[in-house]
Nucleic acid binder design. Structure first.
Lengths: 136, 136
DNA sequence: TTAAAAATCTATAAAAACTATAGGGTATTA
DNA sequence: TAATACCCTATAGTTTTTATAGATTTTTAA
């Protein structure tokens, strides 16, 4: 299941991408438009900013805005920041690899074998979709 | 992330599929061979039996065994029983469809759009893999 | 220049849901 | 009678989501 954090983050990014200009949009406006708890959204936008997707401006007329063009924002990057690893088990993760505690030999592991295919299928989707593809 | 329930369930199924015959195998043997908490495995095997993947025999010489051939057991079916919906959001689920609370219109939803593609990619994998593919 | 208002930023904690495991007893079969 | 699956319950731990409370920065205007 997709966490609400990811869901809300994607919706917020899409909302910002659909703006005509790149002027700051207030958290409250995004929250209201997308039916999101404002405080929760606040923390999500913060992590998106810290990870280089958004810029922010404080004070009156402030808010959040995209700092790249929507077609330059790959879903692989977004998903990894919001949801974490794309792989369903650490032992097939490209960016978050870890050996499993159980499982003496990955090459003999049935789960590993299946999840490799799943990972590749998901990567294929995320690599071929940008933020722009979500709004058109 | 794949739950341990699913991971263990897959390993247990693969272990049973790799047996030479379809004689009952004891829970304890599977648990030991796959490094799984025996009590936890017990409940997993039970759900696999209730969902028509396994048969069981009580008493001395009892245990669990496959009741279909490995190449007849689709990963779609296994994953739905162990992990739940294949879709990452209910609004794109084939077997567990639900409307989202937020989101007035699915057709306009950016998350829906992306997750449809993800669902299809995953289905493609699970539909084209059977238990037999995990053990060879 | 200063004060008020508007916004983001930060930290914490509480509530809820889910996951993984363990314990103990019952029923069944060889 | 011993081995084994079956069933129910409890619980510790973790993660997710939301809520609370304030601190900080910027703009505006008196």
């Amino acid at each position: 299941m997709l966490s609400k954090k990811t869901k809300y983050g994607l919706k917020a990014l899409a909302y910002l991408a659909s703006q005509e200009n790149r002027e700051p949009v207030q958290i409250a406006e995004i929250a209201k438009h997308e039916n999101i708890s404002q405080k929760f959204l606040e923390s999500i936008l913060l992590t998106l900013r810290r990870n280089g997707f958004l810029g922010s401006k404080k004070g009156k007329g402030g808010g959040y805005y995209l700092i790249k063009e929507p077609n330059e924002i790959l879903m692989t990057a977004v998903m990894r920041v919001l949801e974490g690893p794309i792989a369903m088990v650490p032992c097939v993760s490209l960016n978050f690899y870890e050996k499993c505690d159980d499982c003496p030999d990955e090459n003999e592991c049935s789960v590993n074998k299946l999840m490799l295919k799943v990972r590749d299928a998901n990567l294929e989707v995320y690599r071929n979709n940008t933020l722009k593809d979500l709004i058109s």
